[in-house]
Design a protein around this nucleic acid. Structure first.
Lengths: 239, 239
DNA sequence: GATGGAAATAACGTATACAATATATAAATA
DNA sequence: TATTTATATATTGTATACGTTATTTCCATC
């Protein structure tokens, strides 16, 4: 079973080192919106929190940066990444391609135990939604999508989706003002039924629709808070 | 223009640090088969080659490890990654999904200048093939695929493909015993013609076929050199 | 009061030292 | 001679120190 959402397949024996723990803690904190996009992540402060040296902190931050969950600017340190609207669209487009495109294989490979696991995740999802625990709900929703794709049996695609889903979580943090856990209570259940029936075609249209809905629930109106675009402002002025 | 095959989009201002140079040199050496799969990459030895401290070397190696071009085993150091047959199949399956699935968008976005650039890469590819320069030919072939996908305008997918293509290069190093630059001299040209004609459907079938051909040109017979599978050996014995 | 610049402070990039662990070598035993 | 065990060596994991660069603070000036 996947621990949290964390990277799908570690290299043999990658556990046991301190940076793994730091990485995992930071990863979870970001995914769960405990650390919000734009927040600074100074190495010294983290050093004190985790009681390890900067060497270890830096390794974890660099990994998160490669996964685009944090942004590192030279000599200016790390911050929690803040996806732009363009990035958000790319990420959902990529998810469409991957998640819809692999469903044939998923339907072909799926076993009863897989369905049971998916149902269990969906159940926990309902639980979190009813408890209004957005953090947990978002995390579990992501787990569902990742677990589903893992059935296709392609570790590389699964790994890629883990990153896309992680970043989706950041996107929700930035643009999900109107994010509601309602209206999606039984959403994943419908898919499970289709999978159980072996109806790949309908599962694909369902998934495509689902991702579209998630995306359009976001408020991606032209960004306001970002730095004012003087070039545009002045080009729009007459005289 | 993409510098070599190197990662498609760097974070703003990621240049200028030493580890970038080390990373780029190692990346290129691996892609070009100057460092072959399985080769050890001891930190001290690299320290002397690059005349930087282990800190810098380690950062570069860790990045390459996350991109799966090198394998790091705890306390045992880094080696150039040696993709298994299963990995190879996953990588080509992922490439099919991504490269075929984005061609509609590519055809929709493509501009004359893009076509010109693709033609230029194809030309250099021919040149390298005629000169029997396999290293350069493989590298340019990868560049072609990446440049093509970049037209779709999805940086995340492009980035993912960069990694898949890099690893494809490793796969060729391991399983491409019968690799011949012949018979593919005009292969990419045919695609360019289809793109220019705006024929997305045919471009897709072409691409699918092309990737299949590349894959089946590999010799992925059951691996021999790997560690002896005692379980299998003894279960096959009678008495 | 607002602006510009210089000093002070804080944060990061890199090198290096030491500790912990794996590998290799050599000795000992069967 | 083959196998095992103990020691030595080599290599990686982590901490820390120092130099460099960005940011902040403060003061002079307009």
């Amino acid at each position: 079973m996947l621990r949290g959402l964390s990277a799908a397949h570690h290299q043999r024996g990658e556990e046991g080192t301190k940076d793994e723990l730091v990485y995992a803690r930071l990863f979870t904190a970001i995914i769960e919106h405990r650390l919000q996009p734009g927040m600074k992540l100074p190495e010294d402060a983290l050093t004190e929190s985790f009681e390890v040296s900067r060497t270890v902190i830096r390794k974890a931050l660099q990994r998160l940066a490669l996964e685009r969950l944090v942004t590192i600017l030279p000599k200016r340190g790390a911050t929690v990444a803040k996806p732009t609207i363009a990035e958000a669209k790319n990420i959902f487009a990529a998810r469409q391609l991957i998640e819809v495109g692999t469903l044939d294989q998923v339907v072909q490979n799926i076993r009863p135990s897989d369905i049971a696991e998916l149902r269990e995740i969906a159940r926990q999802e309902h639980e979190a939604q009813h408890a209004r625990d957005h953090r947990q709900a978002i995390k579990l929703s992501g787990q569902f999508h990742v677990r589903l794709l893992s059935i296709a049996g392609n570790d590389d695609l699964t790994d890629f989706l883990v990153r896309l889903v992680s970043r989706s979580s950041l996107i929700i943090a930035v643009y999900g003002s109107s994010w509601s856990a309602d209206g999606k209570c039984d959403s994943h259940d419908a898919l499970i039924a289709l999978l159980e029936a072996g109806d790949a075609a309908q599962a694909k249209t369902w998934m495509s629709q689902h991702l579209k809905e998630v995306e359009s629930a976001l408020d991606m109106s032209p960004e306001e808070d970002s730095e004012p675009d003087f070039k545009k402002i002045f080009s729009e002025m007459e005289s």
